[in-house]
Simulated assay, not measured.
Amino acid sequence: MPSLIHFRAHLLWAGLAVLLAACSPPETAKPPPASKAVLELAAADVVRAETGALQPSVVVTGQLRALERTTVQAEVAARVERVLVREGDDIRAGQLLALLSVRELEARVRQAEAALASARAQAVLADAVRDRQEALRKEQFVSDLELTRGAAEARAAAEMVKAQEALLSLARKSLEDARITAPISGVLARRQVEPGQTVSLNTPLFDIVDLGRLELEITVPAGEIARVRTGQSVQFRVSGYETQFQGTVSRINPVAESGSRALTVYVLVPNPGRALKAGLFAEGKLALGEAVSGVLLPLAALRSDGTVPVVHDKRLDLVPVRVLVRDDRSGQMLVSGIKPGDLVVTTRLADGAAGLPVKMAE
């Protein structure tokens, strides 16, 4: 009997132990120790700082224009008989471009010639009358008034001859103007007349441009204009051309544009092969002085706070720099504050990256 009681007691204590174990809260698992953040960079994310040189410059844009161009106009009213050229034709100075009808013009010349002949005959008669009156005056057969009248009529007849000579000269010039010729050499840019068309005085007929020398018209901000001089070099590119072109500052407009206060600068562009065309848009840079030497870095390395991320002893530092020359076109800059050979980070970094250990990806 006592053994049965002991067995029941042990069973009771075992049940209580199981119940207490089930009711007790479980132990909280401790998190593993946090590993410190590491900045992993690829080889494409960094560059070695090198010494180099950049020329101070300003980015400019503008349009190419022909330095010499002209519009040929009709100098006489007439009907167009023939047109001998078309757009794109090479033109030489003095070349015949078109012919106007000369029938009416030739009639005007003949009329002027007849009028001149009549005036000359009248002048001969007036001179004879004057001479006769002067002879009769010596014999007291004519009065002083008649003598004066005869002399005046002779002078008037002589002036009439001059007037008719001038009219004949104008008529002959009009006949010559029926032959439309080119005043300059170049390329025909526009033809505004067709055969059978009647043109009036000063009607535009042709546009001719000389592509041998072009002018690039650019605008320079007011803050940079003090460093612009005639003779400075401008390098530029034109869409559709693989070649880089060059020109020289030839003129500077003395009056700033209203609003922007920028100044217009004119760049002379030699074009011996006539590869460039007038009216094309160009983009380039205007050199503003001698080249400057320093540490050369990509612009992508410069942060908005004026620092450059540099890896020192496998740790990222943000080093303040001073930009000496900035070239937005090439994407490079010259700076002070960085040593040649420093490993510079060019990729975008998150805030708080300064001081992190750096690991280069293999």
Rank of each mutant, 00 (worst) to 15 (best):
T347D: 02
S185H: 02
V109E: 01
T70P: 04
T264C: 01
E50P: 03
A256T: 05
K138A: 13
R103C: 03
V238W: 05
L349C: 10
T346D: 03
E104N: 11
A93F: 10
S258I: 11
L296K: 04
V267H: 01
A361G: 06
R229C: 08
T203K: 06
L349S: 01
E257K: 15
E104L: 02
S304W: 08
S336K: 11
S24I: 11
R149I: 05
V161N: 00
L96S: 10
Q332L: 15
V187T: 02
P2M: 01
A189L: 09
R251N: 09
A114C: 02
S24L: 14
D342H: 03
E362D: 12
V72L: 01
A301E: 03
E159I: 07
E290V: 09
A126G: 01
L11F: 12
G231V: 13
A300L: 13
V129G: 04
S3Q: 15
R172K: 15
L211D: 08
A29C: 01
A154R: 06
L316Q: 07
F245R: 06
C23P: 07
A22S: 04
A158Y: 06
K277Y: 07
K314V: 07
A114E: 00
P33D: 08
G240S: 09
E134N: 05
P309S: 06
E104H: 11
G212Q: 11
H10V: 05
S101L: 12
I5G: 01
A9L: 13
